Simulated scan of single mutants.
Amino acid sequence: MESVYNVIQENPDYFAWVFGVVNVLWGLFVYFNKQSHDKALENLKHGLSLEAERRKKVFELKATQYEAYVSNLDAFGKKYQVDLPAKMQPIIDQYFNDYLAAAQVGDKEKEREVVCWFGSKISEVMRDGMEDLMKLQAESNKLKLTATDQMIETFARLEALTKASFDKSNEFMNKFLEIVLSQYNELSAKFQSELAALGVETQATAKELMELMRQELQII
Rank of each mutant, 00 (worst) to 15 (best):
Q183T: 03
N174A: 12
K168I: 13
E51Y: 05
A86C: 00
K175S: 07
S3Y: 09
E51T: 02
V115G: 01
L143W: 09
Y69C: 01
W26N: 15
F191W: 09
D38V: 08
V114Q: 04
R54D: 12
A52V: 01
N11W: 08
E216T: 08
F59V: 03
E153Y: 04
E194C: 11
D149W: 00
S49W: 07
S169R: 15
Y99S: 04
K110M: 07
H46V: 09
E10V: 00
D98N: 08
K87V: 02
K121C: 04
P85Y: 06
N170V: 10
S120H: 06
L50M: 14
Y31V: 15
Y95P: 02
L145K: 13
K135S: 06
E208P: 02
E186M: 01
A138V: 00
K45C: 02
E42A: 15
K207P: 01
E159G: 04
N6W: 02
Q35L: 14
S3G: 05
Y99C: 02
A197W: 01
I122H: 03
Q192M: 11
W117I: 04
Q137S: 05
Y31N: 09
K175V: 01
A156E: 14
V82E: 14
E53Q: 08
T64P: 02
A196K: 14
V125G: 00
A196C: 07
M1K: 10
L187M: 11
L28M: 15
N141C: 05
L41C: 07
N33L: 14
Y184N: 15
E51G: 00
M88I: 02
V7F: 14
G77C: 13
M151K: 11
Q183P: 02
W26V: 15
L44C: 03
T202L: 09
A196P: 01
Y69W: 12
N170I: 05
K121L: 03
V58C: 03
I91W: 06
A138E: 05
S36M: 08
F15Q: 02
M134I: 04
Y5G: 04
E186W: 01
P85E: 07
P12K: 08
N141V: 10
F29V: 13
N170E: 14
H37S: 14
E201N: 13
V4M: 15
L41V: 08
E113Q: 11
Y66C: 03
V180C: 09
L61Q: 15
D83M: 05
Q65Y: 06
V21C: 15
Y31D: 05
F19H: 07
V200N: 07
L177D: 10
Q81D: 14
E131F: 00
